[in-house]
Amino acid sequence: STVLPPSLPPYFIRGSIIQLADGELKRVEDLKTEDFIQSAEISSELKIDSSTVERIERSHTSPNFAVVQFSVGEHRTQVSVEVLLEYPFFVFGQGWSSCCPDRTTQLLELPCTKLSVGDVCISLTLKNLK
């Protein structure tokens, strides 16, 4: 399945204020892996899944987009996402990463590393899904 998220949301801009599940406020660039894990533990609806990057390709439809293929969760479900090259994903133990970190840093001022095959990203699922 291919999902097309909205272009580039404002909350990825450096300095954006993010509220964790326990109410604590943090800047987007200061978020740590534990912030997501602890927030998901508190949440009654959401749980964190590990999504491993399996392939990264240039989009056939637009030069500004990439298609990232993930292997999601324990069932290793294959999911492809078409995103802007600068769209950041949060990699476990590493932080924000994108297909084109230079563009991410330039456009959002968000410190970012290069998203690579094998990286394990944080993604969400609904807790009641079986």
Partner: peptide, 19 residues
């Protein structure tokens, strides 16, 4: 100043059904 919930930063990559 807008405040965004933590989960808006995380993509929903879950399949609708996993069985």
């Amino acid at each position: 100043v807008p405040v965004f919930p933590w989960h808006s930063l995380v993509p929903f990559l879950a399949p609708t059904q996993s069985d």
